[in-house]
């Protein structure tokens, strides 16, 4: 897993609630058998004016100038600011893969859908939940100040403005925090409990043999 410690990044806002993973990465791109290369098709249907298919030269496609990611002020953005229930719908991990591949390292929203939220951590993309009023304030800042940046510090569990004038604290699960700070391989961690898993499995096989036929 990719580490996440501290990030000072440009913020890009998508002012829309209930953004689903079908929108984040449309299904035609799910045919890939790789984990990378999804960035150019992030929000494909909203970002381009034509219909996208895998294998197209995306640099030559007509872009939707109104879509936020196509605006010069958000070039090089790393922090995604979203509204509530971000990432709802399909469990496709291609959604966080696409966000990461595009260059995002952090998503800030008032709430996330459960599966997407978990998938983010597995890929070093930090999902930060802030209160609705705090997120409102950040949307206001983004609209008002071109080049608006935030500092996200996982160790401190804080999101702050670069001048330090405002600082929001966020909650994070201790295990997930530890894994992300250290970029740990969760499978290796779990396999440290291999004896416990084997013992559990043996007892279960004894009690419910039909589950192991």
């Amino acid at each position: 897993m990719q580490k996440f410690t501290r990030l000072d990044g440009l913020v890009a806002p998508l002012d829309r609630a209930n953004v689903d993973t079908d929108a984040i990465i449309p299904k035609q791109f799910l045919k890939s058998i790789k984990r990378t290369g999804f960035g150019p098709n992030l929000f494909d249907a909203w970002r381009y004016l034509d219909h996208g298919e895998p294998g197209m030269d995306n640099a030559r496609r007509p872009i939707n100038p109104d879509f936020f990611l196509n605006q010069a002020r958000y070039k090089g953005t790393e922090i995604f600011l979203a509204r509530k229930n971000f990432g709802c719908g399909s469990s496709r991990e291609h959604a966080p893969w696409a966000l990461i591949d595009y260059g995002f390292r952090c998503v800030i929203a008032p709430s996330f859908a459960d599966i997407f939220f978990g998938n983010c951590y597995k890929n070093g993309l930090l999902p930060v939940v802030l209160a609705e009023a705090e997120v409102d304030a950040l949307f206001y800042d983004c609209a008002s100040f071109p080049g608006f940046r935030l500092v996200v510090d996982l160790e401190q569990q804080s999101v702050s403005t670069t001048d330090g004038s405002r600082r929001y604290r966020f909650e994070v699960d201790p295990f997930r925090k530890h894994s992300l700070l250290n970029g740990l391989d969760e499978i290796a961690l779990t396999l440290q409990h291999a004896d416990e898993i084997r013992a559990f499995e043996a007892a279960r096989r004894e009690q419910f043999p039909w589950l192991f036929r």
Partner: peptide, 10 residues
Amino acid sequence: HGIGTSEVEH
């Protein structure tokens, strides 16, 4: 319940 691909591997 549904899981992501990293969890499929896990």
